[in-house]
């Protein structure tokens, strides 16, 4: 399944310089499909269209803060891994949001590239595990349904 397509990563930050450096680093070091947006609204539009695997959001942005944005994403695509990129002073808010938003991780600015790479890798793995788990549950449910159907036919046959 993961081999089918490269993982889609969405990055949202109102600062062009942050978007560029993250994109440059990830393109150099990974095979991910990187999409960057300088506003939460644009990102939401995009996310409505098709499945994404991981989203990294800045905290302080005009219009909508990172937590509100990630909450929106949680509704739209619950399996996408959510990561908050915060300044030191916003750490407290990030910590508060962990449960509320179901935050996978928060990354402090200034970040270390290597750490970021690892966190993204783990986040994606989690996301695919979650998907696989979902698929398995569906399979089990299908099997169960089949079994029920068979059961029903058997009962009919014996009635």
């Amino acid at each position: 399944m993961s081999s089918r397509r490269p993982p889609v990563i969405v990055i949202v930050d109102d600062e062009e310089m942050v978007l560029t450096s993250l994109r440059s680093f990830l393109r150099l070091e990974t095979e991910y499909d990187i999409e960057t947006f300088d506003s939460p609204a644009k990102a939401i539009e995009r996310i409505r269209e098709s499945t994404i695997d991981l989203v990294i959001s800045d905290y302080l942005m005009p219009g909508m803060n990172g937590i509100e944005f990630l909450l929106e994403i949680k509704k739209l695509q619950p399996y996408a891994t959510r990561i908050l990129l915060t300044g030191y002073a916003d750490k407290e808010n990030a910590i508060k949001a962990i449960n509320e938003v179901g935050l996978y991780q928060y990354i402090e600015k200034p970040w270390a590239n290597e750490d970021l790479k690892l966190i993204i890798q783990n986040g994606l793995e989690r996301r695919f595990l979650m998907e696989r788990l979902e698929e398995k549950i569906k399979e089990v449910q299908n099997v169960q349904q089949n079994l029920q159907d068979i059961q029903a036919q058997i009962i009919k046959a014996f009635m």
Binding site: M17, S21, F25, K109
Partner: peptide, 22 residues
């Protein structure tokens, strides 16, 4: 000030690292 510096410093640090890797 420290907070404001986070973003540019984060960017430069990250870029320096990316440059080395590149």
């Amino acid at each position: 000030v420290a907070h404001e510096m986070n973003t540019p410093i984060g960017t430069i640090t990250s870029n320096a690292d990316t440059l080395s890797r590149a």
